[in-house]
Design a protein around this nucleic acid. Structure first.
Lengths: 344, 344
DNA sequence: GAGGGTTCCGGATTCGATTCCGGTTGTTAG
DNA sequence: CTAACAACCGGAATCGAATCCGGAACCCTC
């Protein structure tokens, strides 16, 4: 038995009413008597009737669905953000459609198209790190589909007329370096990723500014660009320890490289944090599992996802004409001091 | 300018053709001349025409969307599986809609309804751990919507007539214990979670059977039920080390507790693996970051997601009448021997 | 040049819900 | 007793695409 779902006309026929009345009854419209409403509701219950969202969405022009496009759903950060997004979206009654760009601009384009064709009401994007051309977002613009970037945002786009949510990387880095200085570090190295990514750029700048603000001259020798993983961190640290004047503090732009640095230091019989204090960035879950526990900066991942959804909803509700100029939302990061940088 | 998207009728009008021809031209139907196909395609290009998936889905009765329902998108496991799902779904041309039950049966029900109303073509579910009543899946059944459970599956459901993907926890545990025995461990302890969860039950059984198979009597004193996190592992290990005859090997049902156990051992000046060898389960990403690196069992998370999608697709393609009895797919786990259990 | 085939296209219908515009009752006021 | 109005409901159009059915135009053949 091909158990087709009951449609609104099925209800109409068995009750001897018209589809329009059924529709109105189910949406609790005033033009329907309580008596018939009750009848309709009861039958709907019996037949397990559920409105076809596709049809309703098509008619209304509202799909009740939000799109998410992330580089990938691995590691710590993106899953957390997606978690925040899904949770908040569910609370507001939205479905969530999810895509991965795999850090590839072409897939990013395809997925943006896909989401738009699926008539999502809004799109949240974190850019692939290979994306330098933003034309595919121009289309989203033109269709007046609310668009929010998070974490990896575009810098210049139509006069930076975009909504975005990110954390204050600069501020986070600044806090880290200040903390290291307060712990007595005098030569603070920095492990950085490529500066064309704004996260690294801003952390790098925060590092420099914090040093100068405290009267410490920036030593370019202490700034190393490496692969931001464990191995990269280890190699970079080895190099730093060969310097005639080795650093006594390290600020790494992410946690993995920081762990690598710690291990390199320990393998040379240096004590962390007494000889070298190390701080990472991202507050990955493993930071509390290593020895010593790794100081890091919390990125408020979940909050970021939540905020992105709320921002979208605001844009959806606001009049399309005048919803105010979109201003980037910047979340405050939180420095978490743990064993790797606590010198007492 | 309210830039409404171009529809198929817009194309029809400006080209002086009928919507049906446009539709056929775009789907490369034989009944349209190459000349007009070219004209249509060109105009479509110019107007950035993209078919409205909602309308097409409604008409065709196929939404091209798969639904995923997981307890949550946090930690290591579920994001990895979702990653696998999203990747494979994209490859096969499906969209993915994602929901979280937050380990709550009611939310699980609501989300199942939601997915069904959104006309997804198939659903993948990992159960909330509070779910003991499976009536909400009965509806999915009745609508003939393909349903695949993964990892947390239902045991008895309509004569266990369900599709599922899981890993062989029993086998994984068995391998671990065998490995520990081969490394010379004679007293092997087991840290377990509550046995009403099938993952712990099966791992526990694998532990017992592997011991007896190698002629070692199971010592109930060495089996501890604890919170499966770092702290729980530490406490359990401390207790084990107070025994008159302390264990020289530990198999923990997850990695976090294993790390806790390692730390407890190290804090009592025991060497890992020489004095106590430790193996965890799940192959969390931090297993390669601790000292020593933690031996563990890989759960094939991504593979699980991929397999779930493939299974769904097979069900979608197969004739609804005879697609064979759904048999559970059991993935082989992979023991990864690292420093914490390698004694040479 | 009549019959039979292609080739290419249009009209109308359909998917399932929403919604505009009316129309039929029944009630009440004048 | 009629006009006016409210309460309730139906018909039909609509969203955008897919598809069934049929028809015009053209070519070929005997």
């Amino acid at each position: 038995m091909a158990n087709r779902r009951a449609s609104i006309t099925d209800l109409a026929k068995t009750l001897g009413l018209s589809p329009s009345t059924i529709s109105r009854a189910l949406s609790d419209h005033d033009d329907v008597s309580e008596a018939t409403k009750a009848r309709v509701r009861q039958l709907a219950e019996e037949l397990h009737y559920k409105p076809n969202q596709l049809a309703a969405a098509l008619r209304r022009g509202r799909s009740n669905t939000l799109g998410v496009l992330v580089p990938h759903i691995t590691g710590h950060f993106f899953p957390q953000v997606v978690h925040g997004i899904a949770t908040e979206a569910a609370k507001l009654g939205f479905n969530v459609m999810i895509c991965q760009s795999n850090e590839d601009t072409r897939q990013e384009q395809t997925n943006i198209d896909l989401l738009m064709n699926s008539q999502v009401e809004g799109i949240m994007v974190s850019l692939a790190n290979t994306t330098h051309d933003f034309r595919h977002f121009e289309a989203v613009r033109q269709q007046n589909i609310p668009l929010v970037f998070f974490d990896r945002v575009v810098e210049d786009f139509e006069g930076s007329n975009i909504s975005s949510v990110m954390i204050d990387d600069y501020q986070g880095a600044y806090q880290v370096v200040t903390h290291l200085i307060e712990q007595g570090c005098t030569r603070i190295a920095h492990l950085s990723g490529p500066l064309h990514l704004n996260i690294h750029k801003n952390r790098h700048q925060g590092y420099r500014d914090a040093l100068t603000a405290h009267g410490i001259e920036v030593d370019e020798e202490l700034i190393l660009f490496c692969e931001m993983n464990q191995k990269g961190g280890t190699q970079a640290m080895r190099q730093l320890l060969k310097l005639p004047q080795r650093p006594n503090g390290v600020f790494s732009s992410n946690d993995l490289a920081a762990i690598g640095a710690v291990q390199a230091a320990k393998s040379q019989r240096l004590r962390v944090p007494q000889d070298v204090a190390v701080v990472g960035f991202s507050n990955e879950m493993f930071t509390t599992l290593t020895e010593p526990n790794l100081s890091s900066v919390d990125q408020r991942c979940e909050q970021m996802g939540k905020t992105a959804v709320q921002l979208l909803q605001k844009m959806l509700k606001g009049s399309p004409q005048r919803q105010g100029p979109p201003k980037p939302i910047v979340l405050k990061p939180k420095l978490l001091v743990r064993e790797s940088s606590q010198r007492r």
